[in-house]
Design a binder for these strands. Structure first.
Lengths: 226, 226
DNA sequence: GTTTAATTTAAACACTTGTTTAGTTTTTGT
DNA sequence: ACAAAAACTAAACAAGTGTTTAAATTAAAC
């Protein structure tokens, strides 16, 4: 069975897809470095010189390839989110019980974001507070589409009489993603608290305990009977 | 009854407490402006000139009063989090059923953070990713203390046979706070989605629907029976 | 009222920022 | 092989960064 513990597979697929459109190896190299640094030091906290240094290229290459730092970010967003929509939508048509679909949705989300921590942190938390909304129209569309998919799954469960009907569906995504993000954003705190000394232990905890906790939470929220 | 829809009361109390220690009006003015700008544009995205301009003071005054930009941030954190611990701990000794305590804890958290959005966004999401951990030891202690309080409440409910015992307690806070933060960090998205056109509508939605959703979630998670 | 201390200021400091320019090297097409 | 295009580079640009300095103003103390 295809287990979700590899970030590498999707990564390779994406590179293949994207490179057919417009990205060459150098651009990808820049994007990868940019993601790493943006996620570590924030967008404003990362300079083009930092990026070019780590990517071992000339400073001018970023402007040459992407035009500006802002447009580098836009390219990064596109690069990293282009195939999530497909992944979610294909889940819709799988032959699974509603609850299993929800569980798998959680699994996809967590694995997905866990493999692309940097860019999702920027997307969800750094950019929304600023006046960069106009640049992120495509991302808003992605969110809307994913919400529609979730709604379809839940409505299915509701019509089958499995899920309760007094749930505010748009607030479920915040619970799923918010729980993960809050955990991960406070990584040092939880690493100490839960004795997750190594990176492996930390990642395993996310893949197992945290994912299970979120699935348990959503299940309790959806299936709970008064 | 004391309703939680006022951010002003706590704000006034805090100012009174803090000013007795070391803060004068000018310092407070700088801190308030700093919080506003940090929360809008991020720590790195805000310059001391921005702050001094909006606070209508000379640039040198920030260094004069706080020493540096980093230490201004530290002062801001202390200024804004000093009384949350007391508020949570006093809840522990109230004569309430465990579930009501949990619900009130959620209410306190959401109101509290909602009234201090800026600083909490910085604390939870901007600073944790960088190497600023050493500056935030006090904040980590606050988090630990609050977790202990939550644990006390839940253990109480468990020993009374009301709460299930297979819950990972440290993961409950991420669910509570993460849900709120994810909602608020994607404010423009949810404002459009849920037609919360005005600031009042948005705030009311947080105070009512979102708080209820989180309480419902935690209740389902704690009380759910197989 | 004078002196001492605290506050406030404008200017300068050295440094980093994103971007552009003008020139060089490399690759590509014929 | 040669010309055109693309890739790449070092240097410079103007603007902005956090911080410091030294002088001016205000407040406090005696």
């Amino acid at each position: 069975m295809f287990k979700l513990n590899s970030c590498l597979i999707l990564y390779t697929i994406r590179n293949t897809i994207m490179s057919n459109i417009e990205l060459n190896d150098k651009k990808i190299q820049i994007l990868e470095v940019a993601e790493k640094l943006f996620s570590e030091k924030g967008f404003d906290g990362t300079s083009i010189r930092d990026i070019s240094k780590m990517a071992k290229i000339n400073i001018a290459m970023v402007s040459y390839y992407f035009g500006s730092k802002e447009r580098l970010l836009e390219a990064l967003i596109l690069y990293k989110t282009s195939d999530l929509k497909l992944q979610i939508e294909s889940l819709l048509h799988e032959n699974l019980e509603p609850l299993d679909k929800v569980n798998k949705l959680v699994e996809i989300y967590i694995n997905r974001i866990n493999c692309n921590r940097g860019i999702y942190r920027i997307l969800h938390f750094e950019l929304t507070s600023k006046k960069r909304e106009e640049n992120l129209a495509a991302f808003a569309e992605l969110k809307k589409g994913n919400l529609k998919s979730l709604e379809t799954i839940i409505r299915e469960g509701q019509s089958k009489g499995i899920f309760r009907t007094d749930v505010v569906i748009p607030l479920i995504t915040p619970t799923i993603l918010g729980t993960f993000f809050h955990f991960h954003m406070n990584k040092p705190f939880f690493q100490e608290l839960l004795h997750l000394n190594t990176e492996t232990l930390y990642n395993d905890y996310i893949k197992n305990s945290l994912t299970k906790h979120i699935q348990q939470t959503i299940k309790a929220l959806l299936v709970y009977e008064n």
